[in-house]
Design a protein around this nucleic acid. Structure first.
Length: 400
RNA sequence: GCAGGGAUAGUGAAGCGGUCAAACACGGCAGACUGUAAAUCUGUUGGCUCAGCCUUCGGGGGUUCGAAUCCCUCUCCCUGCA
């Protein structure tokens, strides 16, 4: 019995935006929702109680990382991801497909979301090699050799036991040729079919775990024909929802998401992988995205930046040394309720671990609240007003 | 008191006649971070009218075309012996 359900609650006329509810065995997710990232079965520097307190509805972990350490079998023995990490809400796992890029062609390179200059990586520097059947790669932890296939990714994710899993895909970069995108897409399609097949085998083997939902991932980079083609291909398969992945030029994000969502069935949830900048969030939701995840709030926080209504602020900067006000006046997060910018500045300079926790709490709270506010604005029809005012402030360069 | 060693930019520490405004580390300053090889990475860090010039390597004085680097002397510190 599949317990995964998605229901649309309200729609914003004149756009693809909607609110909805995803029902999983571990609880409901009110969408649009920002899904917090906990790659290695932990949201870095935060306890599950703190994750709950910032109103996170679900956590997304990573199959690649958990396979290498501590091993998916161990998590299975522990009773599944949710129990293992003491997070009693819904969970997602990413397939490990992203590592094809981050360890392969994008090794040591930042994925350029703006679409500027990019270099490809020479073969000898690569740690991952893609072929039609799968990916051979070397562990970033100890250099040991491994091989991922669609089947193994499903076995890993199935063992980890998240409520929502993603099909194994290949992520290309913007500099890959159109020809390569076609070749890659062919693999992503084949792997999607193999994921479906492998999951049905696993479900038959483990009826108790048939609750796990599987999302297919749409690739195709910046090409409209490829994006639409990929979406149509995946629709024909038995996916519970869809992820949209791959290299996306920042200024075309809304456009690309809209092509895909015009092809995908309306009544299934759509997840945009790895996005959380405020302007991207507005663009994504406006074009029909229900959930997204991103490492940015925690990573940026650990590295000293805080989200505010007037842009990100580098709290390590000396101008905050004697600033005894909270990160945001009136912010309801634990950090702003109790600590000043000067204190956070001090913790960051002293490399105190509490800095990571307090900065992460604020940033996660901030992004989650933004998405919650957007959800409410869809319900009461004030979406466009919120978007306009919000982004005007955020990019105003005012230092408040 | 005698013998030896040492004083280098914010700190520690290289340099031991020219390529030294002086390695490197830390600290400082600034920036970046979008399916986490990230408590990470990048740039910068004497001054200025900045492709050049000026003042620096404990203080002072020498040697030399040229000194942080050699000599004399003073001050302070360390280690032995008295």
């Amino acid at each position: 019995m599949r317990q995964f359900k998605f229901k649309i609650n309200t729609e914003l006329s004149g756009s693809l935006a909607r609110t909805g509810t995803i029902k999983t065995p571990h609880g409901e997710i009110q969408t649009p929702a920002f899904i917090v990232v906990g790659t290695k079965a932990t949201v870095k520097a935060m306890t599950p109680e703190q994750v709950k307190a910032v109103h996170a509805q679900a956590v997304l972990a990573n199959a690649y990382h958990l396979y290498l350490q501590p091993g998916h079998k161990l998590i299975e023995k522990a009773g599944g991801l949710s129990k293992f990490m003491n997070w009693n809400g819904p969970t997602f796992t990413d397939s490990g497909g992203f590592q094809v890029l981050s360890l392969g062609s994008g090794y040591k390179k930042v994925i350029d979301m703006v679409g500027g200059q990019q270099e490809t990586v020479s073969t000898q520097d690569r740690r991952a090699f893609v072929d039609n059947d799968g990916v051979t790669f070397y562990s970033h932890l100890d250099g040991s050799k491994h091989r991922f296939t669609a089947e193994l990714s499903m076995q890993i994710q199935h063992a980890i036991g998240a409520d929502i899993m993603f099909a194994f895909d290949e992520l290309t970069s913007l500099v890959d040729s159109y020809e390569y995108q076609i070749e890659s897409l062919r693999r992503t399609h084949a792997w999607a079919e193999r994921c479906i097949k492998e999951l049905s085998r696993l479900r038959a083997e483990h009826p108790d775990r048939s609750y796990q939902a599987l999302f297919g991932v749409v690739q195709g980079a910046q090409y409209e024909d490829l994006r639409r083609q990929c979406a149509r291909f995946l629709v024909a398969l038995d996916f519970d929802g869809f992820g949209i992945g791959g290299a996306i030029e920042k200024n075309r994000l809304g456009e690309i998401v809209s092509w895909v969502n015009q092809e995908l069935p309306k009544d299934k949830p759509k997840h945009l992988l790895g996005i959380s900048e405020p302007d991207d969030i507005f663009a994504a939701i406006e074009n029909g995205i229900d959930t997204f995840d991103c490492v940015s709030p925690t990573r940026v926080g650990r590295n000293g930046s805080a989200y505010t209504y007037f842009g990100r602020k580098n709290i390590v900067a000396s101008r905050f040394r004697e600033d005894f006000s909270p990160l945001i006046e009136g912010c309801e997060c634990y950090t702003c309720q109790n600590y000043s910018r000067a204190y956070l500045h001090h913790l960051l300079h002293a490399h105190e671990l509490l800095a990571n926790t307090l900065m992460s709490i604020h940033n996660e709270h901030f992004i989650i609240k933004l998405v919650d506010d957007i959800r409410n604005s869809i319900v009461d029809g004030s979406f466009y007003k919120l978007k306009q005012n919000w982004l005007k402030n955020y990019y105003s360069k005012v230092d408040k």
